[in-house]
Each structure stands twice: as structure tokens, then as C-alpha cells.
Design a protein around this nucleic acid. Structure first.
Lengths: 137, 137
DNA sequence: AAATACTGTCATGAAAAATATTTCAGTAAT
DNA sequence: ATTACTGAAATATTTTTCATGACAGTATTT
């Protein structure tokens, strides 16, 4: 998981929420995010895989929300972008001969899973609709 | 914040917990983590700044816990290593002319602060002593 | 049927961040 | 005086993230 994938996906989905049923192009979305359209398409690809958006190819195509903004939670977005735990293990395998090094990754992994779950629950309490209401248009 | 700084610091502190009052050298600790001693010293420097460990220079020196393992929580470690929010904003400034791009970072930042706090609270519920008890020695 | 405007995907390159290594000045015990 | 440490700076290497270009495929419009 890239730390900023969540921000990018929430941005995209908030944008889609704000235009209701309209199809937006990756180019247009990239203009709001100020980033490369290919990266946006990559994120969209993931959101689509997770059934948060649907797309239409060809001229006049683009993407839009796959369901109502009230039916999508920030937790759904989190699980969609989540690849690894929020916290990461150290790069190298700890020393297996050390009693601590031997077990640490197992215990850390358990802990990290608990943290992920708490965050997910917290984020499930906020729908995309709720989030969008925080904006002043 | 590096995603793995937390894992590294918890490892170090668990190791220190397991040897009670003993002074451990950065070289020894690095052996358990299987990483470069200089990186360990960098982490120790941060932990020391946050009063979680104390150090002794010279021969026979090293580091040890600055207080009882029961008086240090994983939340304390989290705040010690925390530099930015758990989630990050996108690299580029969003388009200020876009109504969403205009406000998104403000709202995301608020959200991210709430997430950080929930995680911190969760981690405060576990002391280093508690964590160490999960190990089988 | 040709032009246009999209998605979807791959391949490659550039920039940034994380990690590793070397070195050495300073300190304290032996 | 020697040894074994911390602390810190400078630099190199590796890994990850982000950016860009290219293009095949698809649907709409003229």
C-alpha cells in the first residue's frame, strides 16, 4: 500500500460523488488531482475491481460511482486500496537465533492486523456521502 | 514516518525489556534485528529523545529502558516514531480551481488526524510488558 | 466509413525515499 | 594505553514511488 493511495482514491470518489451520475474521464479527474492520467486510470482500475466505480469505454465514456454515495464507506475504500498492513515489518528477517527476533514478526503481524481492523471499523462509520457533506460548494 | 520504524522500535524495546536492567550495545541489538548498527543507533537516538531509553557511553555502555516496561505503552512508541499521519496526502497540490481539489486536503487531514488518534488510543492499551508476555521464552 | 474521444495496459524513465556503509571524534572502563 | 562503546556526519546503494509515452481496443458522432 502506498501511503497516499487512500487520499487519491477518496479524492476520485468524492469528485464522482459531486457530479452524481455523470461520466468523468481520467483526464478530467487527473486535472483535479493534478497528476498523471495514467496513475488515475490505475487507481480507477483498482476501484473498479472492487466494484466502487463502473466505467464506459469509447467516446463520451468515463467512470462513475457503481452505487449510491451513501452505500460506499471510507472503510470500503480503505479495504480496496489496502495491500499490506498499515504498519510494516522491518526489511530484513530478524535473527532466528535470538528469542525475540525469533517471534517478533509473528507478534507484530498479529498486532498490525488488530490495528488495521480498528481503522477499518472507524472508516466504515463514514460514508462517501457523509464525507462529501463536509465540503462547502 | 517510515512504515517500519514502529516495528524496529518495538523490536528494540522488547529486546531491552527481555534483559531487564542490562545495557545492550547497538551492535548487539543490530544482530537481533539483522540490520546495520548505525540505523539502530538512529532509532535509539529518537527513543532516547522521547525518554523511552537511556544510554551510557564508553566501554561497557549501551542502552536500557528508561522506565519500567509496564510504564511504557505501544502508544508511547507510536507517538515517538510518528512524524506524519499514518495516511498521506497525494504528492501534488490538487487543482485549486476545482471545488473538490480546493478543499480535499483539508478534509483529508482532519480525517487522518482522527485515525491517528484512534490508533494511538488502541496502542496505549498495550504496555511493553503486556506485549512481551505474548512471547514464549 | 472515417474521425474523435475515451478506457485499459504495458514499458520505460526519473525522482524521491529508505536503507546500508564508512569513518571518526568523544567517553568511560580496564 | 587499550578496548569497547555512543553519537553523528557524509556518502553510497537499493528500493519504491511517481511520471511519461505509446498504443491496441471500443463506442459515439459526423
Amino acid at each position: 500500500m502506498t501511503k497516499s493511495k487512500f487520499a487519491i482514491s477518496v479524492h476520485i470518489l468524492t469528485l464522482l460523488t459531486s457530479v452524481k451520475e455523470e461520466w468523468l474521464s481520467s483526464e478530467y479527474i487527473a486535472g483535479s488531482l493534478n497528476m498523471n492520467p495514467v496513475l488515475v486510470r490505475n487507481e480507477l482500475s483498482n476501484l473498479k475491481k472492487n466494484q466502487l466505480v463502473e466505467s464506459k469505454e469509447g467516446k463520451g465514456g468515463g467512470v462513475r460511482l457503481a452505487k449510491a454515495a451513501n452505500k460506499i464507506t471510507l472503510g470500503d475504500i480503505f479495504t480496496a486500496i489496502k495491500k499490506n498492513h498499515i504498519f510494516g515489518l522491518a526489511k530484513n528477517e530478524p535473527n532466528p537465533k535470538c528469542p525475540v527476533g525469533n517471534q517478533i514478526n509473528r507478534h507484530l503481524t498479529d498486532l498490525f492486523a488488530e490495528v488495521d481492523q480498528v481503522v477499518e471499523e472507524q472508516l466504515h462509520a463514514v460514508s462517501l456521502g457523509d464525507f462529501q457533506e463536509r465540503f462547502e460548494f
